[in-house]
Design a protein around this nucleic acid. Structure first.
Length: 675
DNA sequence: TTAGGGTTAG
C-alpha cells in the first residue's frame, strides 16, 4: 500500500515513552501499596472498602452514587483505583456517558490528587465483561482526544503486552473515528498499519473509517487499495462502505465517477441507502447541475430507495443557493406530501433564501407561520433578525428578538451578537451595550465575534477608548488564546480607523509573538496604511514569517493604486521568496500598474515570472502589456506579444484592436515621414 | 465504535 504514514514505532521518542510508561505504571502501583496497607490512615483500606461498599449499595441510584463520590472528594477523601472503578461501573451500566467522560478527564488531568494511571483503572475493569469495557475504553479515548493527547492513546492501545490484555477492535475503530473528526488522517493510517501486528481481525467499521481518512486526504489510489484489502480479508462491504466510497469520489472532484458507480451498483442490486444518493445529489447541486440532481431523486425512487429529509434538504439547498425560491418551495411541498417530516434545517434554508433575495418581509411572515406550527429555532429567528438588521430595520429586528423571549426560547450568544451588530451598524452604541450587559447577566459569555463587533462599532464612532476598555475586559475574561485576544484588539481598532490606538496597544504588549505582528500588519492593510504595512511586512517576512494572503493582496493592491510600483515589485518578489504562489489577480494588478506607469522592464519581469510558473497570460494581461509597450514606443515588442497572444489561441477584443490600430498608425506615420 | 443539511464579523 502506497500510503505515506507516520510510522508509530520507528521513532526513538516512542521507545523512550515505552520505558517511561512501564516505569510510571510500576511507580503508580508502588504508590498504591502503602495506601492499602496503612489501615489507620483516613484514606486507608477500611475507608476505601467502605466507600466501595457504599457505592455498590447505591448502584441502582447512579445520581446519588455520583454525588456521594463527589462529596467525598470535596471533603478531601483521596479516591483510589478501587473507588473510581466502582463509580465507573455504575455510570457505565446506566450509560451516563457525559459523566463518564468527566471522570476520565479528571483522572487524566490528575485532578483531585489522583495517584494512579488511567491504565490501572482499565486493568481493574477489564474482567467486567466486554460490553462495559468497550464503553470504558471509549470514554478514555474520548477524554484523551478532547485534550489533544493522541500519543498517549497510541501508547495505551498499542503497548498491550504491558497490560496483559488486548483491546477489542472496536476500541481502535472508535479511536480512529475520533482522529478522523480531528483531522488527524495520518495517525489513522498509522494505526491501520499497526493493527495487523496485533493479530486482530479488522471489521467493516475499520475499513470504512480508513476509507474515510484516505478520501479526506485526497488519496484515491490508496482508497482503492484498501477496498481491495477489505475484499482480500473477506470482509463484506455494507451500505456504509459503498456510500463512503461514492462520497469519497464526489468530494475529490470525481463526481461523475461517483455517479456512475452509484448507478452501476444500483443495477447489480447492491444495497445502497438514501445517503449514497444524497452525496451525489449534493455534488450535482454544488456543480450547478440541478436537473441531474433532480433526475437522481426520481431514479432512487424507481430503485425502491425512499428519499429522506436529507435528500430533499440537499436539493432545496441547491435551488436556494441559486435563488430559485419557487422551486425550493415546490420541493418542500413535495417532500411534505410524501409524509417526510420537515425540520428546522430545511425551513431555515428557505428563510435564508428569502432574506438573500431581499424578500425579508416575506421571511418575517413565513417565520410567524412556522412559529405557529412549531418548526422554528434560534437559527430561524437569527436569520431573519440578521437580515432586518443589515437593512437597518433594527426596530423590527428587536420586535422579533423580544418575541423569542416571549416564546420562552433560550437566546444564545449568536442571537445576542446579531442584535448587537444591528445596533452597532446604526451607531446605537448604548442599545448595543445594554444588550451586551444583559447577555452577560443571563450567563451567556460573549465570544470573540461579539467583542470584535463591539470594538469595531465603538472605534468607528470615535469611542476608541471605550473599545479598548471593552477589549481589555475581554482580555481579563481569558477569552481565547492570549494572542487571539490581543489581535482582536489590534485589528478591531484598525478596522474602526483607530490606527494610532492600535499601535499604542501593539507597542504596549510586553512580549510580542508573530501573530501579533501579523495582526498589526492586517490592521495596517485594513486601514490602508500601505507604507507602514509594507515596512512591517518586509521586516517580519525576513524571518520567514508570513501573513494571510488576503492582507498581502490588499497591500499589493494599494501600493499599485498609489503607483508605488517599486515597492509593489519588492513585495511581489518577497512573496515568491516565501514560496507563496501569487494569485492570478496579483500578477495582473502589478503588471497593470507597471504598464500604466510605463515601467515596462518591471512589467516584463513579472510577466515572464507568470509564464515561467506555468501560467498562460489572459487577454487582459496581454492587452495591458501591448498597450504598455505602445506607450513607451516599443512597437516591435508590442507586435511580438500580439503574435504570441494569437499563438496561444487568445482572440483579441475591440480594446486590443484599438491599441493595435493606434500602433499601426504610428508606425505608418513614422515610415511615411521618413520616406 | 461508522454518514449527511441551516445562524453572528471582516
Amino acid at each position: 500500500m502506497r500510503v505515506s504514514t507516520v510510522n508509530l514505532f520507528s521513532s526513538s521518542k516512542f521507545i523512550k515513552h515505552h520505558h517511561f510508561i512501564a516505569l510510571r505504571s510500576v511507580s503508580a502501583l508502588a504508590q498504591l501499596k502503602p495506601l492499602s496497607s496503612d489501615s489507620d490512615s483516613d484514606s486507608g483500606p477500611q475507608n476505601t472498602t467502605k466507600v466501595v461498599e457504599t457505592l455498590n449499595r447505591l448502584k441502582k441510584k447512579p445520581i446519588d452514587a455520583l454525588s456521594y463520590f463527589d462529596n467525598l472528594k470535596k471533603e478531601g477523601f483521596l479516591h483510589d483505583v478501587c473507588t473510581y472503578a466502582a463509580i465507573v461501573r455504575i455510570l457505565c451500566h446506566f450509560r451516563l456517558n457525559k459523566e463518564l467522560d468527566l471522570i476520565f478527564l479528571q483522572i487524566i488531568r490528575k485532578q483531585n490528587n489522583v495517584e494512579f494511571e488511567v491504565i490501572d483503572l482499565l486493568k481493574a475493569l477489564y474482567h467486567d465483561g466486554s460490553d462495559s469495557f468497550v464503553r470504558v475504553s471509549n470514554a478514555m479515548v474520548k477524554a484523551y482526544v478532547v485534550l489533544g493527547m493522541f500519543d498517549q492513546v497510541l501508547e495505551i492501545l498499542f503497548l498491550t503486552e504491558r497490560h496483559g490484555f488486548v483491546f477489542p477492535i472496536s476500541s481502535y475503530n472508535f479511536f480512529m473515528n475520533q482522529l478522523v473528526h480531528c483531522g488527524k488522517m495520518d495517525t489513522v493510517l498509522a494505526v491501520y498499519q499497526q493493527l495487523g501486528r496485533l493479530g486482530l481481525s479488522l471489521n467493516v467499521y475499520t475499513y470504512v473509517i480508513v476509507l474515510k481518512a484516505l478520501f479526506k486526504k485526497g488519496c484515491l489510489e490508496e482508497a482503492f487499495e484498501v477496498y481491495r484489502e477489505m475484499d482480500k480479508a473477506e470482509v463484506t462491504p455494507n451500505e456504509f462502505a459503498y456510500s463512503t466510497f461514492i462520497e469519497g469520489l464526489c468530494m475529490n472532484g470525481e463526481l461523475d465517477l461517483g455517479h456512475q458507480l452509484l448507478r452501476a451498483w444500483a443495477a447489480t442490486k447492491i444495497p445502497l441507502g438514501a445517503f449514497a444518493y444524497t452525496v451525489v445529489i449534493r455534488g450535482f447541486c454544488n456543480d450547478t447541475r440541478l436537473e441531474e440532481a433532480e433526475g437522481l431523486l426520481l431514479f432512487m425512487e424507481t430503485q425502491g430507495v425512499v428519499p429522506d429529509v436529507h435528500v430533499y434538504s440537499a436539493l432545496i439547498s441547491g435551488y436556494c443557493k441559486f435563488g430559485n425560491i419557487s422551486k425550493a418551495l415546490a420541493l418542500h411541498s413535495e417532500m411534505v406530501s410524501k409524509d417526510i417530516k420537515t425540520d428546522c434545517v430545511v425551513v431555515n434554508l428557505i428563510l435564508k433564501c428569502f432574506c438573500q433575495l431581499g424578500r425579508v418581509s416575506e421571511a418575517v411572515h413565513q417565520l410567524k407561520e412556522l412559529e405557529e406550527i412549531g418548526i422554528v429555532d434560534n437559527i430561524s429567528y437569527n436569520l431573519v433578525v440578521d437580515a432586518l438588521c443589515k437593512l437597518g430595520r433594527v426596530d423590527e429586528a428587536m420586535v422579533l428578538f423580544s418575541e423569542m423571549k416571549d416564546n420562552q426560547m433560550v437566546l444564545d450568544v449568536v442571537n445576542y451578537t446579531t442584535m448587537i451588530y444591528g445596533y452597532c451598524l446604526q451607531g446605537k452604541l448604548c442599545d448595543a451595550l445594554i444588550l451586551f450587559k444583559e447577555m452577560k447577566e443571563k450567563g451567556h459569555e460573549p465570544d470573540l465575534v461579539t467583542y470584535k463587533i463591539l470594538a469595531v462599532g465603538f472605534a468607528r464612532c470615535d469611542f476608541g477608548q471605550v473599545a479598548i476598555d471593552l477589549l481589555n475586559d475581554m482580555k481579563k475574561q481569558g477569552l481565547g488564546p492570549y494572542f487571539a485576544r490581543d489581535n482582536m484588539i489590534i485589528e478591531g481598532l484598525c478596522l474602526g480607523g483607530k490606527v494610532k490606538e492600535a499601535e499604542a496597544f501593539f507597542h504596549s504588549l510586553q512580549e510580542k509573538c508573530l501573530e501579533n505582528y501579523s495582526a498589526m500588519f492586517n490592521g495596517y492593510c485594513h486601514a490602508d496604511y500601505s507604507e507602514k504595512a509594507f515596512q512591517l511586512f518586509m521586516r517580519i517576512s525576513k524571518q520567514g514569517f508570513s501573513v494571510s494572503k488576503g492582507s498581502i493582496f490588499k497591500l499589493l493592491n494599494s501600493l499599485c493604486i498609489n503607483g508605488d510600483n517599486a515597492k509593489a515589485k519588492m513585495l511581489f518578489d518577497r512573496i515568491l521568496t516565501l514560496n507563496l504562489e501569487p494569485s492570478k489577480i496579483m500578477y495582473s494588478k502589478l503588471i497593470g500598474s507597471c504598464c500604466q506607469a510605463g515601467e515596462m522592464g518591471m512589467a516584463r519581469s513579472v510577466f515572464d515570472i507568470l509564464i515561467s510558473r506555468g501560467n498562460t497570460p489572459n487577454l487582459m494581461t496581454y492587452t495591458m502589456m501591448i498597450n504598455g509597450y505602445r506607450k513607451v514606443n516599443c512597437m516591435q515588442k508590442a507586435f511580438e506579444l500580439f503574435k504570441d497572444m494569437k499563438r496561444q489561441g487568445i482572440a483579441p477584443d475591440d480594446v486590443t484592436y484599438k491599441i493595435l490600430f493606434n500602433i499601426h498608425s504610428k508606425i505608418n506615420l513614422k515610415s511615411s515621414s521618413s520616406s
